[in-house]
Design a protein around this nucleic acid. Structure first.
Length: 506
RNA sequence: GGCCCCGUCGUCUAGCCUGGUCCAGGACACAUGCCUUUCACGCAUGCAACACGGGUUCGAAUCCCGUCGGGGUCACCA
């Protein structure tokens, strides 16, 4: 038996891909990337992308988790043709609502003899597994010998049973994976696997194959940890007499600086070192969706030897599976951040203003809703910040002082720029310069400060830097004259006075 | 442990299928310099890799074998 065609992308049929998240916790960027590859493949070929919720294993709080997943996709710009909220002709799209479909499929497999009732208990299986381990042989579940009388008796007792797939011995399965190439797997390596629990709920390897068949999925693109799982699924497809989809197993996303898969247990550790692994963390920090989309697409995929920056449309146009790498890629926070900066450069002032708003409001630095004056000031701050603003939340770190009269001096900057002989006296003179500069605008201020430097025989750096720290409290930031103008004369003079006072005290 | 996948600069990758144009190209990061009032941006330069060992060949990152390393999977999880 072989799976997938050699020319799997067939023109006459519509290409259909799917992403099937289980609604537990948050969306991981590795998961988003898997969804993205599915989506790009569908969009590139004018096909459909389906969202299916794999919720066979849990009951509560599913709706909330699903909503978070959906919101995440909407944010990054991945839309789905069928699935939750939009419906579709092959629904329902929640596995928990597809019980009847699974039951029918299981029934067919029982009738055709591919599946049998397993009355084993957990204790028995545990013992067998332990025995196998002791004897250093692999544990593979096989049907226990059972007499007709026993079977009849169990049935009469109403003894619970699971449905197991009878794996044919001695066969070699071949998968023509679109990324990994041909992969062979011996059925002797596969134990008889459970397809339906005693309570009637289906298991992944079965439900997945049934759904992919029913939903007419043509291309299964998923993370490579499913590669081994594919073989039992192949058996299910075959037993069902279903047409096989093509498979593409993409490498997983490894943790930064390593080839190890990102681990849920290390999330806190990652966050401490500035590594974000959940989609919502990027949203909360004010990343641009196109930057993350660009980054995720490039992780394990490339178009040519040089292009790094891709718009959404360009990705759709250029994405093909044959350019997907077959080895794992580790998450690179620095590269993402660089891409973020590249995309932020393309954002309009209006968009930046809207993006920055929530952070200022959360900090109580502007009114909610913002006043016209707030908007006006934010616009000027954004312009002054320029390329320094990489993610929206940076507005707090970089520009807090524009929105509050509280002046907190950064210790390092004070030490470097203000703790020098003659600085308080110079600041007092500069205060006079600011007081007398008329009009109080960029060009005039610049000339005034220049003249002062010349007059007092100082280098520009020795004037400008202390003055910056005096009015902003920070050693780095936008151009000094931008700061002076945005802050305004009165505020600047007040800040200088406070700085002189502070220097006198310490 | 069995089986399966993977192995090019620190990282993302191009090149590998169809051996020579590769003393291995691009990007991020890092370093230095320029620009500049700081930082960011921009520009220039630099650092830096074919996991190892055999073989095939006139010639190997590219083909073959082995070793080592990393990962996945062996569930009534997905």
């Amino acid at each position: 038996m072989t799976a997938g065609g050699r020319h799997p992308i067939v023109a006459h049929m519509t290409l259909r891909t799917r992403f099937a998240p289980s609604p537990t916790g948050f969306l991981h960027i590795g998961g988003v990337r898997t969804a993205l590859f599915n989506w790009l493949l569908a969009r590139h070929h004018g096909g459909q992308f389906i969202l299916r919720i794999d919720d066979t294993d849990q009951q509560r709080h599913v709706e909330d988790a699903v909503r978070r997943i959906l919101d995440g996709f909407r944010w990054i710009g991945i839309d789905w043709d069928e699935g939750p909220e939009v419906g579709g002709t092959y629904g329902p799209y929640y596995q928990s609502e597809r019980a009847e479909l699974y039951r029918k499929a299981a029934e067919r497999l029982v009738e055709s003899g591919h599946v049998y009732r397993d009355y084993s208990t957990e204790a028995e299986r545990t013992a067998d597994r332990a025995a196998a381990e002791r004897e250093k042989r692999a544990y593979r579940f096989r049907q226990l010998p059972i007499t007709d009388e026993q079977a009849a008796q169990y049935e009469a007792e109403g003894r619970p049973f699971a449905l197991r797939f009878r794996v044919p011995p001695g066969r070699t399965l071949v998968l023509h994976d679109l990324i990994k190439g041909d992969v062979e797997f011996a059925t002797d390596e596969i134990g008889d696997f459970v397809i339906v629990r005693p309570d009637g709920t289906p298991l992944y390897n079965f439900a997945s194959a049934v759904d992919d068949t029913e939903m007419k999925i043509t291309h299964v693109v998923r993370a490579e940890e499913h590669l081994s799982n594919t073989f039992p699924q192949l058996l299910v497809f075959e037993a069902l007499g279903a047409e096989l989809p093509a498979f593409a197993h993409i490498p997983y996303v490894a943790e930064p600086g390593s080839k190890a898969k990102m681990s849920k247990r290390k999330i806190e550790e990652y966050e401490k070192s500035g590594i974000l692994v959940y989609l919502h963390q990027y949203i909360e920090r004010g990343y641009l969706p196109e930057a993350l989309l660009n980054y995720l697409a490039r992780l394990g995929w490339s178009f040519d030897a040089s292009q790094e920056v891709f718009s959404r449309d360009e990705l759709i146009e250029k994405f093909t599976l044959d350019r997907v790498n077959s080895s794992p890629a580790s998450h690179d926070q620095d590269k993402l951040f660089w891409l973020e900066g590249e995309w932020m450069k393309t954002a309009s002032p209006e968009r930046k203003l809207e993006g920055v708003l929530p952070y200022l409001q959360k900090e109580g630095l502007i009114a909610d809703p913002p006043t016209a004056a707030d908007r006006e000031r934010i616009g000027r701050v954004i312009e002054a910040l320029g390329d320094r603003l990489k993610v929206f939340s940076d507005v707090i770190k970089l520009g807090r002082y524009f929105f509050t009269e509280e002046l907190t001096h950064e210790p390092d900057a004070v030490k470097k720029r203000l703790r020098k002989d003659g600085v308080p006296a110079m600041l007092a003179e500069l205060d006079q310069v600011l007081a007398e500069t008329e009009p109080y605008d960029l060009a005039t201020l610049e000339k005034a400060v220049h003249d002062y430097a010349e007059r007092s025989g100082r280098k520009m750096g020795d004037v400008v830097n202390p003055l910056r720290v005096a009015v902003t409290g920070q050693g780095v930031g936008p151009g000094l004259y931008d700061c002076l103008v945005i802050l305004g004369r009165e505020s600047c003079r007040a800040r200088i006075a406070r700085t002189i006072q502070m220097l006198g005290k310490a």
